[in-house]
Structures are given as structure tokens and as C-alpha cells.
Simulated assay, not measured.
Amino acid sequence: MDLYDDDLTGDGHWAFGTGFADPLAGIDAPPASPELAAYCLALGDDALVMSHRLQEWCTRAPELEDEVAIANVALDLLGQARLLLARTGRGEDDLAFGRDAAEFRSVRLAEAANGDFAHLVVRLLLFATWRLAILGGLRDHPDPVLAAIAAKGVKEVAYHRDYAAGWAIRLGDGTAESHRRMRAALEALWPLVPDLHADHPGARAEFETVVADVLARATLDAPATTGRAAPRGEHLPELADAVAEMQSVARALPGATW
């Protein structure tokens, strides 16, 4: 039987497997306003692009335990992306695989190409600390769907932050070489931090407190220089390659199910 035979099922999702039900089915909520849809799209794109960058680490982690941990973090973020993109009222697969890179609304921290393991640790620490502060505040959002997504996400992202913090301390306060690599990763990613606070100034205090505490324990200092805050929709050049890879199968076989 053809793997892509449309008769295999009446419903198909490229991102999440064939035959899954609508993730928001049965939830009593009005259609999202344009403002809510735009906000969920941005948060969903952050999760989707970051998930893809983490998936690129499959087979590259230093230990099997970390291979599993990183894959699980990527799956958590992929699940959050699905719920958030679905809340926009548009098809989550259409949004994931039907847009060009320029149409994404992800933050540049999620878009940056992967470096070494220290780069992964620093990026995940910054991203998860910021996202956890945001989701914590959204648990009381007036939209019941977004509030439920945030409540579920808090439990997941708390682990993401703790995993990254543990590795940051281990590497920063480890050997001279691991410390050097952590310092280089901070220097490379720190200019992207202002983007995080542009849309969510209320999360800044928690972000700065947590990151400062982790860096102190890791015997690391935050870089003195910062970049400018780029608006949503301004992307790093490497996002185009990431989106092209993520969409390659869906673009090659439009409308297929699996």
C-alpha cells in the first residue's frame, strides 16, 4: 500500500502524525480576535523554530541521556507550537509548512544556527527562562485556551530551564576549556537578548534574576555589550535554510498524509 495513499485515513497532519484530532476540539472558546491570533502565532513560531533547532541535535548530543532529554524538550515545544498555531484559527500544518521564512514571527534567538554543545546550553537557558516567565503570567489570561496552554507549558518549560541551568553550571564551573566555550556561546547569543524583552517587558525582571543567579553559580559574567531589539518579523539569514529543511517533505509531496 502506498505510504502516502489518501485513503489510509480521513485526516492527516504533517507535523504531528496522521489521524490526530483537533487539539482544541471540545474547548468552549470564541474565535480568536486578530490581536490574540497574532500573539499566539508569535509564541507558536518561537516554539516551532526552537523545536526544529533542537531536533537538529539528534545523534549529536554528548551522551545518550542527553540525546533523550534534548529530544523530549523538542517534542514539548512542538506540542506547544501545535496548540498555539491552532488557536489562531488557521490550520497548524498550513502555518508550519505553507509560509515562507519571511512570514514567520519567531524571535532571532530561536533562529540562530546551532553551534557546539555550550551554544545549545546557553541558548536553551536564555530561551526557557524567558518563556517560563511569559507562560507563568499567561495562566490567568482571559482567553481560556491560552490560559490552559500556558498552564501545561509551565510544567514542561520548568524542566527545560532546569536542564539547561544544570549544564550551564557544570560547564561554566568545569574545566578551562568548557568555561571558554560557555563564554564564547554567551558572547555569540547575548546580542539577541534585547529582542526577548521588546514584546514582553513584564518578563524581564524574572529573566534577569534567574539568568544572573545561574551565571554566578557557573562562574560566568553576562557580556557587557548588548544588541538592539529587533522587531518581530526581522530574521537572521539562517532561518531561511531551517524553514526550507523543515518544509522539504511537505513541499515535495503537497497534500499527502502519513
Rank of each mutant, 00 (worst) to 15 (best):
M1R: 11
D5C: 12
D5P: 06
D7W: 09
D7R: 13
T9W: 14
G10R: 10
D11I: 09
D11Q: 10
G12D: 01
W14P: 00
F16C: 07
G17A: 12
T18V: 15
G19I: 11
F20I: 13
D22M: 05
P23T: 08
L24P: 08
A25T: 06
G26W: 12
P31I: 14
A32K: 04
S33Y: 13
P34H: 13
A42P: 03
L43W: 03
G44Y: 00
A47D: 01
S51R: 00
S51T: 00
Q55G: 11
E56I: 02
T59H: 11
P62D: 04
E67T: 04
V68E: 03
I70W: 00
V73I: 13
A74I: 01
L75N: 11
L75E: 06
D76Y: 03
L77A: 01
G79E: 10
A81I: 11
R82T: 10
R87G: 03
G89K: 11
E92H: 04
E92D: 04
L95S: 02
A96F: 05
A101G: 06
E103A: 15
F104M: 04
R105V: 04
S106Y: 01
L109C: 05
L109N: 07
N114Y: 04
H119Q: 13
L120D: 00
L126T: 03
F127E: 03
F127G: 01
A128Y: 00
A128M: 00
A128K: 00
T129H: 07
L135E: 10
L138N: 10
L138S: 08
R139V: 14
H141M: 10
P144L: 04
I149Q: 01
I149N: 08
I149H: 06
A150H: 07
K152R: 14
K152E: 07
G153K: 07
K155E: 07
E156V: 00
Y159V: 03
Y159W: 14
H160W: 00
R161S: 02
D162Q: 12
A165H: 02
A168L: 06
I169V: 15
I169R: 03
R170F: 03
G172S: 12
G174V: 12
S178T: 15
H179M: 09
A184N: 10
A184C: 09
L189F: 05
L189E: 04
P191G: 05
L192D: 05
V193G: 04
P194V: 11
D195C: 13
D195H: 13
A198E: 01
H200W: 15
H200F: 15
P201T: 11
A203T: 10
R204V: 08
E206A: 10
E206C: 06
T209M: 06
V210D: 06
V211D: 01
A212F: 02
A212H: 06
D221G: 10
P223I: 08
G227V: 15
R228W: 09
P231N: 07
R232S: 09
H235E: 12
H235I: 12
P237K: 14
E238G: 03
A244C: 09
E245S: 08
Q247F: 06
S248F: 10
S248I: 14
S248L: 15
R251Q: 12
A256W: 09
T257H: 15
W258H: 14
